[in-house]
Design a protein around this nucleic acid. Sequence first.
RNA 1: GCCCUUGUAGCUCAACGGUAGAGCGCGCGGCUCAUAAUCGCUCGGUUACAGGUUCGAAUCCUGUCGAGGGCACCA
Length: 708
Amino acid sequence: MKTFYITTPIYYANSLPHLGHLYTTTVADVIAKNKKQRGFDTYFLTGTDEHGVNIQRIAEQNSQTPKQYVDYISDELKRIFQTFGLNDYDVFMRTSEPFHYEAVQNLWRQIAANQTPKGNETIYKGFYEAWFCPNCAEFKTETEYQLRDGEDVPRCLIHERPLDRVAEESYFFRLSDYGEFLLEAIEANQNLIRPEARRNEVVSFIKSGLQDLSISREKRSVYWGVPVPGDANHTIYLWVDALSNYITAIGYGNEEKESVGFEKYWRNVTHLVGKDILRFHTVYWFSFLHAAGLRLPETVFAHGLWLDNHGRKLSKTLGNAIDLEFLHRHFSIDAIRYFVLREMVFGQDGKFGYESLIERANADLASGLGNLSSRTLSMINKYRDGAIPSGKIEEHNYIYAKRAGISADEQELVSVLEHARDEFLRRFDNFEFSLALEILWTVIARIDKMISDAKPWELIKDEKQTETLSAVLYRATETLRWLCVLLYPVMPEAAQKIYRQIGLSDDVSKTNPENLSYGELKAGTRIGETEAVFPRIDKQKVMSEIQKDAEQTPQRGGGGAEVLEEEKRRRGEEQKTASNEKQMTTDDGQQTTDDDQFIGIEDFLKVELRVGEIKVAERIPKADKLLRFEIDLGEEQPRQILAGLAEYYEPEKLIGRKVVVVANLKPRKMRGLESQGMICAASLENNSDDAPALATFLEDVKIGARLK
RNA sequence: GCCCUUGUAGCUCAACGGUAGAGCGCGCGGCUCAUAAUCGCUCGGUUACAGGUUCGAAUCCUGUCGAGGGCACCA
C-alpha cells in the first residue's frame, strides 16, 4: 500500500496559537484528507516543541514549572485546532514525552557511532562562544542584540545592558563535512526543497560554507531538555531534539511508538514549514539524518507568511493581527479553509484581510458553488418532483437538444470534467492549491452557462423538450457530485452537505476522486432537504461587528512576550487592588525610576502616524474654525478628517499637500461629520494667537508611509 | 555592505522575442430556476522610468527609481 507521511512543524510552546499555526495545520489537514481519500496509508503529525531556555524563563516568570507551562500551551493549541475542526491528525507530538527522550538519545548515539562523509567523527566536544546576557541567562543571536555607534560590546535588547563574551563547553556536530553531500542530494531531487526560489537560497547558503553546529548546552544554563547520553552535565540543544520528533513520533529509537511504523512511513515524507525555518529543516535536518544513516524526506515545502492588506507582517504591536476568536465567531470553517488555499499562492506570501475573506466567500462560495447547487436542486424539485431524472437523450430527440443550445452528446461534458479532475489532482499534488481550485471554478461557470443557454424554465413548457430538460438537470447534478468529491478535503462540511442534498448517502471522505466516473449518479435518486450551504455574508454588518469586537478586546493571543505581558498585568492589577500604595518598588527593593516621564517604544508604536495627501479641503458652513478634509492614506477610500485650521489656512491652497495623520485615532463626530483621524501640526502652547504649522516633509514621501 | 527576486488594467495575477489576456470590482443590457443570483456586452494598460540589441521587446542587455527576500545556532 502506498504510504504518505505529512508533518507540520511542531510549534514552539512559548506563544499562544496564532494564524500561522492555524494555517500550516490547515494546509496539512487538507493534504492529508486528500491522500486518505485517495487510498494512501496516511500519517499526519502536528504538535509542540517544548524544551529550552525560553520556556524555562517564561515558566519561572509565571511561577510555574516548565512542564506546567507547556501543558497549558499545548492544550491551548489543541483547543484551537478542535475549534477549527482540525481533528484529523494522527498524533499530536510533544517533545516532553518520555519516549522522545529515549529516542533522541538513541539518535544521538547512532549519529556519534558513525563517521561523516569525509571520515571524521560526527560529534566532538568543544567550546561554544557567543554574547551572553546574564539577566536573560542565555546566549544572544544577532537579532537579539544591538551594537550602538561608538561601542564595541553589543547590548541586550531586553535589558539594554552590555553583554558578556562567554565560552561554554559544548558538543558540536561536524556540519562542515556535509556541504557536498547536501548539494548533491538537492541536485538529485528537484522536489527535495520547494519552492525553487527557496531552494536556491539554501543552495547559496551551503555554498557560502558551513560551520559546525553547537548541539548541546551546559545543564546549569539549560536544564529543561533531553540530557546528552553519557554526559549528564549537558543538555541536547534545540535542533537535534526538535527536528528528530518527526522520526521519534513514528517509532524511531523507542518501543512505545514502534507500532506506528517508522519503516513504513519514513519512505514518503512531506514536511511543511514556514519559510523562516526552512534552513533548519534542510541543512541541519538532512545532515542529521544522513549522519544517522537514514534517508531524506521526499519534500520540504516552505510556505509564505500571511501579511495584512498593506503587505505588512501581522503583529500584535501593529494591531493588525488576525484574532482567531473573531475568525471563528464570524466565519465558517469551510470558508476559512477555502480562502487560505485559494488566496495564497502556496510558497509565496499572501494577504489576509477580513474584507477579502468576505468577498471570496460571497463571490466564489455563495454566488458560485452555493448558488449552482441551489438553482439545480430547486429545479429538480420544481420540474421533476424531487427525483434526479435520467440524463439520456434518445437519438430522435437530438434535434431538440440542439435547438435548446446544448450538445446532445454528453461526451463533451465528460471530457471537461475528466480534464478538470486530472488537472485538479495534478495541481494539488504539486502544492498548487490556488490553481487547482481555479480549475473547478471554471467548471462551475461552464455549468452556469449551460443552464442559462438551455433555459429550463422555457423547456418545461415544451413537451418535446422533456429529455433535454432532464439531461440539463442530470448534467448539473452529476457535476455537483464530482465537485463534492474533489472539494471534500478543502471544504469537508460543505462537500458532505451538498452530497446529502443531492440525495447521496455514502461517505464522501471515502470516495476516491481518481475513480470518479461520469454517469454513476443514479437516475431516480430522491434529493434531500435543500438549504443554503454558504449563506451570503453581509459585509457591512460583519465588518462593523468585528470592529466592535476589536474595541472590546484590547489584546489577546500572540507571542510569548504577550503571554508575559498579560501575566504581569494581571499580577500588577492584583497588587494595586491589594494595596493602595502610591509608589511601587521592584522585587529587589530598589526604588523605581520615575517611569512616567518616559514611554517605551511599544507605547509610541501604538500611535499610527501616516503620510497622507490632501485631496479635498473645504470650509464647513457655520463653523469658523473647522475645515473638512479628504485625505488619501493609501487606503481604499480617502479619510474624512476635520481640523481646526480655518482661521489660518486657505483650504484651496492645502490641496495636494502631504501631511502627517494620526491614523488610528478613535473616530469622533464634530458638527455632525465624522472625523477619522487627526492632522499633526505644531503650535505654541499658551499662545492661542500663534498660527499652527502643519508638519511636512522636505523629501518626497510615499502616501500611506508610516512614521516611526 | 554583498547577493537574489520583482515592478503589466482599480485589485490579484497570466503572457517570457511576434497584434498585451483572465478573474474580481465598476458600467450597460438580457433572463428569472437560483443565495440582489446568473448570462452577454462595455469600460479599462506609452507593460515603473531612461537608454540599447533586434525586422520586431512586457519579454534580452545597461542604468535610475520603487517593492520584497537571503546573508547560521533566531524552534
